[in-house]
Design a protein around this nucleic acid. Structure first.
Lengths: 120, 120
DNA sequence: CTTCTATTTCTATTATTCTAGAAATAACAG
DNA sequence: CTGTTATTTCTAGAATAATAGAAATAGAAG
């Protein structure tokens, strides 16, 4: 993942309204949620919701599938995992070549995550 | 982590310049990097860099430690892990109570990550 | 074709963010 | 105190984003 793509995706998630939308879709799983269902759940103007959905769609964080007049939205899990891996990979790579052998306290948290990177 | 905090952190990472700053610090590990070192590496105006560092600092994504006249910046790994867990937890919780037993294709990616949540 | 529901596009307003030059401050050395 | 380096705060202009009302479009049903 390129850094500008990653930034665009993080920015898309970095708005409270859009993050709520995204989380609702993550919770919904593969069933997804229609735009209208999202609107009543999150109590936001239809045009505002549509605007935010487009933002999430453009960066690939969600997908949409039309079922007659309703649009089903779903979170794109694979892309989320790619984003997470982008955030944690390359962690501390420069530390190896540097002195500072003594204290390395806060590293465990990331190591735990790094060890888990399966599908890339 | 509250949703507004998570959004603020994602927004902080959602600017290409700030994401580069953050990644440089993640790469640097616990040695960290001084503000001046970051400036020459990323080739950004000092005032702009200071502005972005403050943004990252306010949301807790980085820490700063003064060493005489220079300020050492470090990534806050623990907070990053918290953010990642916020993004993937509650995944698909509503699907359990819903029909749709057949297709569940894209779930593995998240399940892999969910199983790893150790320190919270 | 008309109507109905679902959703988007258009439009405008208000608010926020990005950027960087200039001036100010912090910490130290001499 | 003076000078020097490192960093921040002030300021301001340009750009971008958030919100939502109104109008337009999509698809299906009658």
């Amino acid at each position: 993942m390129k850094i500008d793509d990653a930034a665009a995706r993080l920015e898309a998630l970095g708005n409270p309204t859009r993050l709520k939308i995204y989380r609702a879709l993550v919770r919904a799983g593969d069933n997804g949620l229609s735009v209208g269902r999202l609107q009543t759940r999150l109590d936001v103007a239809a045009s505002t919701l549509s605007h935010h959905l487009k933002t999430l769609l453009v960066v690939g964080l969600i997908t949409q599938e039309r079922q007659a007049t309703t649009l089903i939205c779903r979170a794109n899990y694979g892309l989320m995992q790619g984003l997470i891996e982008f955030l944690v990979d390359e962690c501390c790579v420069e530390t190896i070549c540097a002195p500072a052998p003594s204290k390395m306290p806060s590293q465990s948290a990331i190591v735990v995550l790094k060890g888990k990177g399966t599908s890339r």
